[in-house]
């Protein structure tokens, strides 16, 4: 299921003697990709960092039981996806409807780690209107340019359903952006 390098890394991760060094290697190798996957979904940097730390903690605690049914990167992505969705649900539960509506634009305008113009803020507002899972599908395809087959493994959804979900997301976002720009 995975190449020799990955197989060797997994073997070292599952051996207590070499585990720590191998894990540092894993963090260095995958942290950027995982961070950006989370960041495009969660948007705020500090939140993304918290989610990423949780992802690595979960990986550390469960790497011994990783059976290699999927590629290591797919497994990591799946954990990151689940953690991000869990985080968004928790955050939504804590905020009132008014906070959600006003939140994203105000947050991005005052966010020192977001450097977009008004159109980019409208785009993020539009993405924010999507249901969490559809938003995840959209950001994986739109920003990460991930293949539908990979996305299907990560989300546990069929390729057909993902294509339909992405297509609908694009239409919704396009309509939102046009309505705001008029």
């Amino acid at each position: 299921m995975y190449n020799n390098d990955e197989s060797e890394l997994i073997a070292r991760l599952q051996d207590e003697k070499t585990r720590r060094a191998a894990f540092e290697e894993l963090v260095n190798q995958y942290s950027r990709k995982l961070y950006w996957q989370i960041r495009h979904l969660v948007v705020d940097h500090d939140d993304s960092d918290d989610v990423l730390q949780n992802v690595f903690l979960k990986v550390w605690n469960s790497i011994a039981t990783f059976k290699g049914d999927s590629q290591l990167f797919t497994w990591l992505y799946r954990i990151a996806y689940n953690e991000s969705i869990t985080f968004l649900n928790k955050k939504k539960a804590q905020l009132s409807i008014d906070d959600i509506d006003d939140g994203i634009a105000n947050t991005l305008e005052s966010d020192e780690y977001f450097d977009g113009d008004e159109t980019q803020i409208i785009l993020q507002e539009a993405i924010n209107t999507l249901p969490d899972k559809q938003r995840a599908v959209f950001t994986m395809k739109y920003y990460e340019e991930m293949k539908y087959e990979e996305m299907a493994e990560i989300t546990g959804t069929s390729v057909g359903a993902l294509k339909a979900s992405y297509h609908i997301a694009v239409q919704k976002i396009s309509a939102y952006v046009k309505a705001k720009e008029l």
């Binding site: 950027r32 690595f56 694009v170």
Partner: peptide, 27 residues
């Protein structure tokens, strides 16, 4: 929609990825 794609609008603090591994291991 594709014309609007600007991943670079998202920034990270300077040196964030350089210290990420160390912070992760500490955590």
């Amino acid at each position: 929609i594709n014309k609007l794609r600007r991943p670079e609008v998202f920034k990270v603090p300077e040196g964030y990825f350089d210290t990420l591994c160390q912070r992760t291991m500490q955590n």
